[in-house]
Design a protein around this nucleic acid. Structure first.
Lengths: 211, 211
DNA sequence: TAGATTGTTAATCGATTAACAATC
DNA sequence: TAGATTGTTAATCGATTAACAATC
């Protein structure tokens, strides 16, 4: 999709927060909202909310504000949640399992197709309804299935080689839970690094530097 | 600690990346580095690296650069990793277990003291060497133990009430893995929200809006 | 109609980058 | 000494906030 203005990364990071707020409001049976109400709920300025939303389109109306069901659909559409996405999980250690069980993928139009591991005792089992296959058969399986996003949760020492392998298969996106920074240098897929240590360290900084 | 300039949030977010890079360099037996070398490795500008580091102190030397062991210690100290921190885990579902098993807390001077749950079948067991106690005894236990950081991994519907409870116990920091935004409004502790959906949604956005 | 609230333009603020004197 | 590289100051760039005409 093309927008009139280039969209800043900060704006993208705020979209999920708008989404969750709108879902919460809809859950309360609310019909309409305003940039001011959203801003107060999220600790932002009304200007920022309007700027963010107006970058993608004119979803509001003067004197009225925003219709919640409409805006909710639009925000989902901006994020691409109107498109069905398929997911595969590589590595079913503690993190892989947690990601298979923790999120409600169906609610946001994702479908987890399969998981892969090298450990004999998990191959052939199911985790949360998702079959676990032998990692040895990955190449053939990926050739047969269209996967949009791969959850990478293998041990750190295997992270780079498995990521390159996935990249070779033409994987469009990798959600990387290994604590290895997968720079997109030699890969042509979208990568999101989730390093829990970073999160813990910044928390620790603010803990030790409270105002 | 007090610094000459107010430190921006973006700078704090980059510190863990410097830390990991320096550890990697040290692991290769490297003795010294420069802002240019670090910038190239991290995809930043040398100016940014120097600005970030100089905000905390003068760790480099003209004509030489930075001594890796020294800078590594300094970055750890800025983040507060020279101080030993204690952790408790509340909720031992898939995420709680994963956080107990995934991270090497000892390497960064953290000590996980205990985990809590309400489920009979896990109470009394150990996860990765950490004892799981009955959540009913939390108040007494927290009165007896100094905990710096609580990993919150209870079901979403209990998130807010358990967080308030922890806040009442005087918990200094909460690392929040429930998909509930714990605004710091009514709580006087530092909170870090980790909502995996946000991460997945932004990944999806960039997947659908590749350049 | 009057009041409310948008989308947008202009003003402000902060963060990043560039330049360079200091000096190892 | 000459070359390299810092820390810092100034310049640029981008993001946030404020203001307001348009209009529901």
């Amino acid at each position: 999709m093309k927008y009139k203005t280039p969209i800043s990364h900060n704006t993208i990071l705020r979209l999920p927060r708008y989404l969750h707020l709108l879902e919460e409001m809809q859950g309360r049976g609310q019909e309409r909202t305003s940039s001011t109400e959203m801003a107060i709920a999220l600790g932002m300025t009304p200007s920022q909310v309007r700027q963010d939303l107006a970058a993608f389109g004119n979803y509001g109306a003067q004197g009225y504000g925003y219709n919640i069901p409409v805006l909710l659909q639009e925000v989902k559409k901006i994020l691409g949640l109107h498109i069905r996405h398929t997911i595969a999980v590589v590595g079913t250690g503690c993190i892989g399992r947690a990601m298979l069980e923790h999120l409600d993928y169906e609610s946001y139009n994702y479908k987890v197709l399969a998981a892969f591991d090298v450990r004999e005792d998990v191959i052939g089992t199911e985790i949360n309804g998702v079959p676990v296959y032998d990692a040895a058969g990955m190449e053939a399986w990926f050739a047969d299935h269209d996967v949009d996003i791969c959850i990478l949760a293998v041990p750190a020492e295997k992270a780079r080689s498995v990521a390159k392998q996935l990249s070779r298969y033409g994987m469009p996106a990798i959600w990387n839970f290994t604590n290895v920074d997968l720079t997109q240098k030699d890969m042509h897929c979208v990568v999101q690094n989730v390093d829990f240590r970073n999160s813990l360290f910044t928390l620790t900084y603010y803990l030790e530097n409270k105002t």
